[in-house]
């Protein structure tokens, strides 16, 4: 039955690995039509680290995110969240994993239009039949600046507000890791920046592992670390990125 979500973790548990992909391959089609979306990718996502994945279209960055999140399965290699091997897990176990350990943020907010902002935020807990931690909820909405919008339905919120509601929804169950797919893609630059700096804060302040796919160098510059993908392979890594450095790198990779 209902149980309270676990207490907040200590501020930082640096280097604890939240998720990983080992020698991940993802192949679509067969023979002549074969496409290697991922071609031997190995990567670890650590807690408290905000990672951005970049690369040209078709580089496999979204596929990597999906496989690491357990939404898609690798053709070979291993993908883990915590200690759990995703490839061998059944839908039931994966669902449980998503409930407890994973949060998602999508480009197109994906809120339930019939529910208010508050209800949308609490939806993951309602689904798993857990009570919410009131303090954690208040902290989140305060920090995201949506406290006075809680009783509104998504259609009454701006895009930026909607996405912040989605972020709160991803964080409410204190997942080990959050996967974000172009979270600022549908937002104007000001809303985008607010959102990204919040993600940055979440990683620092709550020790949250965050993995974000983006094609926007400005967005990637908010991350602690940037991975560059090309033709299904990680071709480079960058820590402490700036948008200028990222753009430079992208040019080198050659779009």
């Amino acid at each position: 039955m209902a149980k309270t979500a676990t207490k907040p973790r200590a501020k930082k548990q640096t280097h604890a690995i939240a998720a990983s992909v080992q020698d991940g391959q993802k192949i679509y089609g067969k023979d002549t039509t074969e496409v290697r979306a991922l071609d031997g990718v190995s990567v670890e996502f650590q807690q408290g680290v905000f990672t951005a994945i970049m690369g040209p279209s078709g580089s496999g960055k979204s596929t990597l995110l999906h496989c690491a999140a357990g939404l898609d399965k690798l053709s070979s290699g291993s993908a883990k969240i915590g200690d759990m091997e995703l490839g061998r897990s059944k839908d039931k176990a994966l669902t449980k994993l998503r409930r407890e350990k994973v949060g998602f943020i999508f480009q197109s907010f994906n809120l339930v239009p019939t529910l208010t902002a508050k209800e949308n935020i609490l939806l993951p807990l309602s689904i798993s039949g857990k009570k919410h931690d009131k303090k954690w909820f208040n902290d989140l909405v305060e920090l995201l600046g949506i406290k006075d919008r809680l009783d509104h339905t998504p259609s009454e919120l701006s895009g930026g507000q909607q996405q912040r509601v989605a972020v709160a929804r991803a964080l409410i169950s204190r997942p080990e890791i959050i996967f974000a797919d172009e979270p600022s893609g549908n937002l104007d630059s000001k809303s985008g920046n607010t959102l990204l700096s919040f993600l940055q804060t979440a990683a620092k302040k709550y020790g949250q592992a965050i993995v974000m796919v983006t094609h926007d160098a400005n967005a990637a510059a908010y991350a602690d670390e940037v991975l560059f993908l090309q033709d299904g392979k990680i071709v480079d890594k960058m820590t402490k990125p700036t948008s200028a450095k990222i753009l430079d790198k992208l040019k080198k990779i050659g779009e």
Binding site: T95, K96, R98, F104, N110, V112, P113, L123, P124, I127
Partner: peptide
């Protein structure tokens, strides 16, 4: 479809 996908992504089981 997309909404159902999202619900599943945030932890709704098949049974639910």
């Amino acid at each position: 479809t997309r909404e159902i996908g999202m619900l599943r992504a945030i932890g709704m089981t098949r049974r639910q």
